Computed example of a mutant assay.
Amino acid sequence: MDTYVADTDRYEHLEYRSCGDSGLRLPRLSLGLWQNFGNDRSFENQRRILRRAFDLGVFHLDLANNYGPPPGSAEENLGRILARDLGRYRDELVITTKAGWTMGPGPHQQGGSRKYLLSSLDRSLARMGLDYVDVFYSHRPDPDTPLEETMLALHHAVVSGRAMYAGISSYGPSLTRKAAAIMRDLGTPLVVHQPSYSMLNRWVEDGLLEATADEKMGVVAFSPLAQGLLTDRYLDGSVPPGSRAGVGRPSWRDNMLTDEVLDRVRGLNRIALERGQTLAQMAISWVLRDRGPRTVTTALVGASSVEQLEQNLKAVDSTEFTEEELRDIDRWAINSDINIWWGATASKE
């Protein structure tokens, strides 16, 4: 078995930003293990991607209990890769996981109850072979559980040593402020919010980025490529075999690939080409653009190959936009009913 030794220049490639008002720092681009790290993908390819990511300074690895397929397998595969390759660098890695979406049958395999969150965290740690994660998130708001109970579970995860920090995901502006106030009173501040955000899914601009700035929280934007729509894969209107739409992955709905959405994607692609970027690179650059105190801390990208990872990382070199470019982008960057995460959560408050 080959012995992995990390590149000694790994911290020379990326900028690192503080996560809100905390001492936690994250690379401008982070690796999400949502789609490409289950048992349906080559394990050796997963090893190559993770090793290359770390060599390029991407030390933030984001998971959830239900990532796969099957659910849990992404955490298991990361655990295998930690044991073989990256475990010796655990102190450098920021490994995050979540609980909230369905993991199995019964009332305590989903939601925001103390029972589900803490038992799920224990199982996540066992799958990864870890004593702690760096951030544990409530993956979604749960209208059937008091917010105080969910926040107390996050607080306990931290004070018990199973997590270094606590975060929330897909909470609206009002709930974010309420959750932050509860956690502040408990003495375990929320350090990060993880919302979906892309050119075709701009809901965070309607109060959430202001809320996170006011609450001194970092922002980890997921799905900056709009579940793959903001790539060159669908420009001709067809559905390539192996794409998320083509294999019916749960991150897609039938109404996403409409003529109207494709017109917007093609308009954005023309601007990207004028900037000397691929559409995917521009989409990531745009999410990371300077918005003052409302600037996104890091964007999560997936990668099905080392080459795709390297191409995505080039986006961090071009996060500046002219006013004219931003106006042109706004003509096409319109909410397109692709936010699949609201359907099973509380309201957008």
Rank of each mutant, 00 (worst) to 15 (best):
E92Q: 12
A346H: 13
L152S: 15
G242I: 03
E149S: 05
V191N: 05
R25V: 13
L152T: 12
G218P: 02
D290S: 07
E210H: 04
S196D: 00
Y165Q: 01
K216D: 15
M1K: 12
Y116L: 05
N45R: 15
R51A: 12
Y67P: 10
G111L: 05
M103G: 15
V316R: 04
S198H: 09
T97I: 01
A221N: 00
V204Q: 08
S160F: 13
Y171D: 04
M256S: 06
L147T: 06
D290K: 09
T150Q: 10
P173C: 09
L29M: 12
I81M: 14
R140A: 15
V296A: 07
S119F: 03
L152A: 15
C19L: 07
M282Y: 06
W341P: 09
G343Q: 12
R270F: 00
F136T: 04
G129F: 01
M183P: 13
G267H: 09
R10Y: 05
N201M: 12
P105Y: 04
I338G: 04
D337G: 07
L326A: 09
L262V: 03
F222R: 01
A157L: 02
L262W: 03
V247R: 15
L78M: 13
E323Y: 00
N36K: 11
Q46D: 14
G57T: 13
L118G: 09
E320G: 15
L268I: 01
L130R: 03
K348N: 14
L175I: 08
T145Y: 02
G57L: 11
S347T: 08
L61E: 03
G57R: 07
N36I: 06
S124D: 02
Q281C: 11
Q311T: 06
E210L: 13
F59M: 05
S318R: 00
N312W: 02
A315S: 10
Y4H: 11
T231S: 08
W34P: 01
S223N: 01
R90V: 12
G167Y: 09
V296K: 01
G172S: 07
E75H: 01
G87Y: 03
V265C: 10
D206I: 01
T145C: 11
D236P: 05
P141K: 04
L14W: 14
R253M: 08
A283L: 07
L117T: 01
E320H: 11
A181F: 10
A157V: 04
R233V: 00
R331D: 11
I81V: 14
L29N: 12
A221M: 01
D142Q: 10
L61F: 10
W341T: 15
D330V: 00
R291T: 02
T345F: 06
T176E: 00
M183N: 15
P173Q: 08
E310Q: 01
E215K: 02
Q194F: 05
G246S: 10
M103T: 14
F136H: 04
C19W: 07
R294W: 04
P173M: 02
V219Y: 07
T297L: 00
V58K: 00
E148A: 10
A163I: 07
